[in-house]
Every structure is written in C-alpha cells, then in structure tokens.
C-alpha cells in the first residue's frame, strides 16, 4: 500500500495499533481541509503492528493529548520534505478539557462550565485524577 510522502506537515509514528482513530478524533483532525492519512496495522519490527497518521499541513498538534493517549508515539515534523524535528512524548502533568470526570458525585457533573482538569498522580503507573474530586480516570 502506497501513501505519498508529505512535504510540509506532521507524521505521528509508533501509534499503538488500533489507537489512531481515537487520536484522530481527539486532535480534531476531522476539521482539517488538508490531506490526512490514517494507516492502520503497519508491520513494525519494534512493535509488531503500529498505526501511523500523516497530516499534510504544518498544524499545531496538542502534544498533551498525544502524551496522555499514547506516550510512545513519535512526532515527526516535516518541512520541505525533510524531517526537521523528532519529538518524544511523556505523559503530561496536567490535562485541561481533554477528558471528563465520570464520578457522579463530582461538582463538574452538575456545573458543566467548570474546566475539566486532571493531574498526573504519582502512582506505580501513570494515573490521571480529577483536580476537583481526585477520582481516577479509567
């Protein structure tokens, strides 16, 4: 399968297989007018299978969203057909209006104008907790 290489834009590589559609939605890539390619289940020597997203425009990508969803993703910035930057991600310390609290007792469930803020709780694995009620986002 051939997908054209891009000239100016972004390539999200090493996406865990199956997560590309979720990333597509959370990054609002559906709102772009440029070409966006989602390539699923690509063979990978390191990961077995992986997904790739190619965006044919130099947009600002919300790295916090990517770091939350899949910190192993590599973000490649392409200019004039050349990769000029390769970003490694890590789980962000704080997420604002990316995910929402599901605790029915939380104040955010009755007052939707409150920003949804989650913090990275220092536990054995990366866990995000609501800034207001401390519930874990599962």
């Amino acid at each position: 399968m051939n997908i054209d290489s891009i000239n100016n834009g972004i390539v999200l590589d090493h996406i865990t297989a199956g997560k590309s559609m979720q990333i597509y939605k959370l990054l609002n890539l559906d709102r772009l007018d440029c070409s966006v390619a989602i390539i699923k289940n690509v063979k990978s020597s390191k990961m077995g299978r992986k997904d790739i997203i190619k965006i044919d425009e130099a947009i600002d990508v919300n790295l916090d969203v990517l770091g939350y969803l899949d910190p192993d993703i590599t973000v490649n910035i392409i200019r004039n057909g050349v990769r000029i930057q390769k970003l490694k991600l890590s789980p962000p310390e704080e997420l604002v209006n990316v995910i929402s609290c599901k605790n029915p007792r939380c104040i955010t469930t009755t007052e939707p104008q409150i920003p949804q803020i989650f913090y990275l709780s220092g536990e054995d694995k990366p866990v995000y907790r609501c800034r207001y009620c401390d519930s874990e986002r599962k």
Binding site: N103, R105, C106, I107, T108, T109, T110, E111, I114, C130, R131, Y132, C133, D134, S135
Partner: peptide, 10 residues
Amino acid sequence: RHPKEGAPRV
C-alpha cells in the same frame, strides 16, 4: 460545605 466533591476547590 457542599454535597458535590470538589465544590470548595471551585
């Protein structure tokens, strides 16, 4: 005092 968790933080 508020019945909703996190209300004082708000």
